[in-house]
């Protein structure tokens, strides 16, 4: 395995020097995507591409991999974002970020036996109600064990250097960011970071049968791993972590699980 030398991006995010930030937003809710990206002045000056997924209804991991294939030969930072992700502060700078790493805006790492979220933000219902603050605030990039799917930032060079590092298309709407984080670490030894960003995620929901299927898939794919995710432990040895801590969050309440 080749070791890629550290090369720092020299330009700020808004600059057009070949390492600029390209933002990709697949959507099924046009109003939300427009409000949070097209009309959000925080994104003005950035290359934001809204991808209409209403008819095709493709899995996000499939769409993301298509985007990667399209841009693989460029030198760019690819930022994959959910339509319900509203940036409320200055967008992070990519200058100084290591290319040989995976980034996001919310992730989880173990602290002792506890999974701790990093990347404080408001998580609310689609209509903005019921907002709760989630995650520890950060002021600089912080390494985590896994990222949440809401946003993922990658440089095309890391994707070129690691051809196996792609989104898992078995995981259509859940857990693909977690799978990418696990794959990056397990197969490539790449670190995973959360970047500081003020945002709101309009995504309250509950884990579905699709999520549990995804968990089983991850357990088969990474039989020797045990890492925390945003809603549950992940990997074939997740039960070892579960022995010390049980997730009991709005999206995955313990009471419903045990019932």
């Amino acid at each position: 395995m080749s070791k890629v030398p550290i090369d720092m991006a020299t330009a700020d995010a808004g600059e057009r020097d070949g390492d600029g930030l390209r933002v990709f937003v697949p959507f099924v809710n046009e109003e939300m995507a427009t409000r949070f990206f097209t009309r959000n002045e925080r994104w003005h000056g950035y290359q934001v591409e809204l991808i209409d997924n209403r008819v095709r209804k493709a899995g996000l991991s499939t769409l993301y991999n298509e985007i990667i294939r399209r841009h693989l030969d460029e030198d760019a930072w690819l930022f994959f974002v959910h339509e319900d992700f509203e940036v409320q502060g200055p967008v992070f700078k990519t200058a100084g970020l290591r290319r040989e790493a995976i980034y996001g805006t919310f992730g989880v790492k173990m602290q002792g036996h506890l999974p701790i979220g990093h990347g404080e933000h408001c998580c609310s219902r689609k209509d903005g109600t019921g907002g709760i603050q989630v995650g520890l605030p950060i002021s600089a990039p912080v390494w985590v064990d896994t990222l949440d799917c809401q946003s993922i930032l990658l440089h095309t060079s890391v994707l070129r250097n690691h051809p196996g590092l792609r989104f898992d298309e078995e995981l259509t709407f859940d857990l693909y960011a977690e799978a990418l984080s696990m794959s990056a670490q397990e197969s490539c030894g790449l670190p995973v970071f959360v970047l500081p960003l003020a945002f709101q995620h309009y995504s309250h929901g509950k884990v579905t049968e699709r999520y549990w299927r995804g968990l089983r898939h991850l357990a088969r794919r990474f039989p020797d791993m045990a890492l925390p995710g945003a809603c549950s432990f992940l990997g074939g040895r997740a039960a070892e972590l579960e022995a010390h801590f049980t997730y009991d969050i709005i999206a995955n309440p313990a009471s419903e699980r045990s019932a």
């Binding site: 064990d145 030894g189 790449l190 670190p191």
Partner: peptide
């Protein structure tokens, strides 16, 4: 402490086979 453990875990996967 946690970072050192993580670094060893990642290093074994990056530099080792």
């Amino acid at each position: 402490a946690a970072s050192r453990e993580k670094a060893e875990w990642l290093a074994r996967r990056r530099f080792g086979t």
